[in-house]
Write a protein that binds this DNA or RNA. Structure first.
Lengths: 150, 150
DNA sequence: GTTCCTGCAAAAGATTTGCAGTGAC
DNA sequence: GTCACTGCAAATCTTTTGCAGGAAC
């Protein structure tokens, strides 16, 4: 888990990157970027809309999807698909914040984890593949600690 | 890549498992199981419907989804989500046929691959996690050999 | 003042469900 | 003959798009 300092760093980087790409500092866009920067794990579009409705300001579903698309295009947002009906998104962090997900098959909760051995195996494999690998995503499924303690 | 012998083995196992679970040997169900058993990589629900329309018999979209659900519930079918609008499915093979996917960001093609180093890293990690891991899914993204030869 | 941003409502896709007729046992 | 299976059509849910008014620059 990374510090909130690093996460808020993402919001700033994202805001700068969008500005550099010629986007204006609109209300919906800023609110979405700020909310995403505070998250420790992935949110769906509906969750982003719902969360903002109760907080900073109401933002339309359409704007949520539009901003998500901009951020994903700039490589700032990672798409997380875990088979629960809707796609989820989270800040794309390299190095320290990089993580993957465990989905509990009983309670449906999403838990982040990271493992250097796994990253090393991915790096080695990427070098041997006849393709240029730019990203990877790993999802583990099973019963989480709360649902099936060992 | 596994032999067609192993793949057809899946159809038989799946048919038996469904029969044991009390399902009857209906036309749509049999056709779908047979088609899936012949595949070397994942198909979407629409692809299954379209493929069957040209071959063995016409099967409705609803039946495709219903049979997929039965097979997935029995642990015979693996769900593959690679962010292309629709979910894909393929026979769940353990051991020799086990593989993961590379998605080309340019042409969108899906390519299977397998790597023992990666599997080893997953096994080690699973033992150390405070959860009971039953499955894992790995997706690599990048430019495939045809789109960006090294 | 111009151009981009946003919300609303409608559209487009994917998946699920209800129901009546058909088929497996 | 009974109960499950299937297709059709309608419903539901997520995501995308068109357009008109409002905001950033």
């Amino acid at each position: 888990m990374e510090s909130s300092h690093e996460r808020s760093g993402w919001s700033e980087r994202a805001a700068q990157a969008l500005a550099a790409a010629g986007y204006r500092r609109g209300g919906a866009r800023s609110a979405i970027v700020e909310l995403l920067g505070e998250q420790s794990c992935a949110l769906s579009a509906a969750e982003i809309e719902h969360e903002l409705r109760g907080r900073s300001r109401k933002v339309s579903r359409a704007s949520v999807y539009r901003v998500i698309e901009e951020l994903e295009g700039a490589g700032l947002l990672a798409r997380v698909e875990v088979g629960q009906g809707s796609v989820r998104f989270e800040p794309a962090l390299e190095g320290p914040g990089h993580h993957h997900h465990l989905v509990c098959e009983r309670c449906g909760r999403l838990q982040p984890f990271s493992d250097e051995g796994l990253e090393r195996a991915i790096r080695r494999l990427s070098e041997r593949m006849p393709a240029r690998i730019s990203e990877h995503e790993i999802v583990l499924r099973g019963a989480c600690e709360a649902c099936a303690p060992r």
